[in-house]
Design a binder for these strands. Structure first.
Lengths: 115, 115
DNA sequence: ATCTACACCTAGAAATACTAGGTGTCAACC
DNA sequence: GGTTGACACCTAGTATTTCTAGGTGTAGAT
């Protein structure tokens, strides 16, 4: 817990989207927007470098293609990526319920600890 | 949403702890550990600068004292800080439920979008 | 005397996410 | 024929956050 207890969660989101099937970067951004009901409208400058990072880490593979005259780089999750997804999803569960415990429970208003 | 959609959540945690009553830095770290059931065991180098930042931003006030021969800096949340807490708590709710929507729902496995 | 817990601090490194540009294709519209 | 907007990719540099790795000093117990 001492190590990066408050890490970012973008990798988890990207892996989750790609766990449903291969997609290219632009489609990943749109899927995140749709699946989050508009909460996530991530700039390309955030997502593309992250995809590159995940590919370099072996969690994704990619392939170029041309569709309708436009080139696309389609990413697919790897076995390692699925393992990372499982791990990060459970880390998210722990993290988010810990946050809930901290911010909820505003009832225990007895003596302040500093007396 | 386009702007810092994935911000860190430390400020929220600190404000939530201090909303229950004033406390000094070391006590805040311990309270976070206890309230999160050990999930958050944050290094001092993470927490102290964050408290300074929040004070500079006007969300906290602080006062020095000496207890048992040891000097302490006790922080208290300000009115602005309470407003920020309310705002950040609801941002957290939106954020965490959006994450849940993205990583849950692994059933819709129809045609991949890339055809 | 030394060690641990308490209690504070900072500088610099590492990582993350964003801004702000850039390239090029295609379809629609004027 | 020219512009505009959606599609689709990219990177360099910046801002911010968080962590590492030290440092100082008091008090109490061994």
């Amino acid at each position: 817990m001492k190590s990066q207890a408050l890490k970012g969660h973008l990798d988890l989101l990207l892996l989750a989207i790609l766990a449903e099937g291969p997609a290219h970067g632009y489609a990943v951004i749109e899927a995140l927007g749709v699946r989050s009901d508009g909460e996530f409208d991530l700039p390309e400058g955030t997502v593309y470098p992250a995809l590159h990072r995940l590919e370099k880490a072996g969690l994704l593979g990619s392939e170029w293609s041309v569709v309708g005259g436009r080139r696309r780089r389609t990413y697919a999750i790897s076995t390692q990526g699925r393992a990372a997804l499982t791990e990060q999803a459970s880390a998210w569960d722990r993290f988010s319920s810990a946050v809930a415990r901290v911010i909820g429970d505003h009832s225990a208003n007895g003596e302040p600890s500093w007396a």
